[in-house]
Simulated scan of single mutants.
Amino acid sequence: MEGIMKELYDEISELNTVKEYKDRISQYVTKLKQQGLPDIASEINSLSEFYVNKLSKESTFDSMKQSQTSLLNYIENHIYFGEEVATNIGISIVRKIIANFHLFCKSLYKDSIHGKCSAEIKDNLSKIEIKNEYDVQQLMYPLIRAVFPDARLEKNEDSGHHTVREDIVIDSQNIIIELKCSRKTMNERSLSEEVAADIVHYNNKYIVFYIYDKENVIKNPHNFKKTYEGKMVGDKQIYVEILQPTLL
């Protein structure tokens, strides 16, 4: 089943004739049934129906385009199959996880621990302290992977200028999550330069920065975020989330 819905979405998006549309839908309905998904096949088949006006090819084409739009919306907004999530939904989920990461941390090791938990959990959770981006990565990665099973930890990539280290990569969504943690030797300008350099060198469609500013080097988080948030750099979409430890 892996990839079939994205494959269907991509193919249907490109179709521009009545015959191609009918043929592709028929092929995918058969494929879905073969993969043990008759209910989805039936839904796809139903949504793909359109009125054929024997007296007007133009009217038939317009009806087909309306059907095509409805079908694409269905796949995009309502279908989750294993590792497959429509990319526009995927980036929204990632941003939601990251925006609320501080709540996860607070619940995990700051809030009171249930009295019936094992001694190992009670003794060790209270000792957790985030000191660098690797600590952030270790805590965030399981959250991301629970939703996106193909998520993986950093890889090294030769950009042609220097080696770029990616922190959490979700290949199916074309997302890179870059984790940063401020240091005593860092100031806001150097942090900004790191972010700008990463934007240039990463080739993912979505670049999401999570900045754990434990040293409070960012004087105005709102303005810092606004500098990059939602900006398009070529075909790259940039997002930034900043957490300063006072929130925990």
Rank of each mutant, 00 (worst) to 15 (best):
K219L: 14
L8V: 10
V233W: 12
P149V: 02
N156L: 06
A197W: 02
D10W: 08
I121M: 12
S182D: 00
F148E: 01
S70G: 14
N216S: 14
R183N: 03
S46H: 11
S67V: 08
A119E: 11
K226M: 11
T227H: 13
L191D: 01
Q173N: 04
R24P: 06
Y21R: 06
A86N: 13
P221R: 05
A151S: 09
I75M: 11
K106Y: 13
A119S: 12
V147H: 05
I128H: 10
V200E: 04
E154G: 15
M64G: 13
N203T: 06
S107A: 15
N204G: 04
S48F: 04
N187A: 04
T17K: 12
S190N: 10
K96H: 04
I175M: 04
D39R: 11
E133K: 06
V29S: 04
E43F: 07
F104G: 04
V169H: 01
G230E: 07
D150G: 04
Q237L: 09
K106P: 05
C117I: 07
P245Q: 03
A119I: 08
E14A: 14
V217K: 15
Y80A: 08
M140S: 03
K180D: 00
V52P: 05
D198C: 03
V94P: 00
I79F: 07
S26W: 07
L179H: 00
V18Q: 13
N216E: 14
I91R: 00
K122D: 12
F81W: 07
K54Y: 14
T163L: 06
E178C: 01
I98K: 00
T227I: 11
Y80T: 09
V136Y: 00
P245N: 05
N45T: 01
D111H: 12
H162W: 06
V233R: 12
I79L: 12
Y239G: 01
K184W: 06
D111W: 10
K22E: 11
R24D: 09
N203G: 07
Q35Y: 12
T30G: 10
I177S: 00
F61K: 15
Q68W: 14
I199E: 03
I89M: 00
I177F: 02
L37G: 05
M5Q: 08
A86R: 06
V18P: 07
Y202G: 00
Q34A: 14
P149R: 05
E241K: 03
S67M: 10
F61M: 13
D150Y: 02
Y80F: 13
L71T: 08
D150I: 03
Y51W: 11
K226C: 09
L139F: 11
Y202A: 01
G90Q: 00
V136T: 05
I207K: 03
M140N: 01
T60H: 15
V200L: 09
T87H: 02
R145L: 08
E178D: 02
L15W: 11
I91D: 00
F61S: 11
V52S: 15
N88V: 03
Q137N: 14
P221S: 08
L247T: 10
E215D: 10
Q138C: 09
E157D: 03
Y51S: 13
K205E: 07
L71E: 08
I89Q: 02
D135A: 09
I130C: 03
K214Q: 15
K155I: 02
Y134C: 07
S48N: 07
K65R: 15
H222T: 13
S70Q: 14
K127Y: 08
N53L: 09
A151Y: 02
S56R: 14
S172C: 08
L143V: 07
G234H: 09
Q68H: 13
